[in-house]
């Protein structure tokens, strides 16, 4: 709110007070609205989650999915600030199976682990447990079984070659 220390005539002071009252009321309303609002950042809408998962799963489950499309969808998944749901991961792995791309399937597993960020220990075991049936069904290994959870090869940096 704007206040001024400048002296002014009586009428102006009165109007000022009126304005202040109005502003106070408006502020009060705003704060009360903020207190009751439903769509804050911390508010979590389960409906949105379902739609989000369904959108990706539907895309990966398409019959004639292309190698370009699946890569685009994976990039899209990486762009979101969220850990991919086991359902999405399973659908993606199945799509990889249909495209006969084993390497891409392993990369998807790596992406899911990478997206867990600092909370790998909390979320990654759960995701593994959920996707384990599909892994066994498709004949996939986890990245730990392949030994890709730790660096396997050391490569000279491109900047250091020349």
């Amino acid at each position: 709110m704007v206040t001024s220390n400048r002296k002014c005539s009586n009428t102006v002071e009165k109007t000022n007070e009126k304005a202040k009252d109005e502003a106070r009321k408006a502020l009060y309303e705003v704060t009360s609205v903020i207190g009751r609002q439903e769509y804050s950042i911390s508010y979590h809408d389960p409906k949105y989650d379902e739609e989000y998962i369904k959108r990706f799963v539907d895309f990966f489950n398409r019959k004639h999915i292309d190698s370009w499309e699946i890569r685009r969808a994976i990039h899209d998944l990486v762009d979101h600030d969220s850990i991919p749901d086991p359902e999405i991961v399973c659908a993606c792995l199945r799509a990889c199976r249909r495209l006969n791309d084993y390497a891409l399937a392993i990369r998807v597993l790596e992406v899911t682990k990478n997206k867990c960020g600092n909370k790998v220990k909390e979320y990654y075991p759960y995701i593994l447990q959920e996707i384990k049936p599909t892994l066994d069904e498709l004949g996939l290994e986890t990245i730990e079984e392949l030994g890709y959870d730790k660096p396997e090869l050391a490569v000279v940096d491109v900047d250091d070659i020349h």
Binding site: R97, D101, Y102, A103, L104, I106, R107, E110, V111, K113, N114, L138, G139, L140, E141, I143, L146, Y148, D149, K150, P151, E152, L153, A154, V155
Partner: peptide
């Protein structure tokens, strides 16, 4: 069937598509 691939073949497949793993 991917069950019939050996671990070495799987690793070769991965390395044919990608240069480095995420860990690397």
């Amino acid at each position: 069937d991917w069950h019939k691939l050996t671990l070495e073949e799987k690793k070769k497949l991965y390395r044919s598509s990608f240069r480095l793993t995420f860990a690397e």
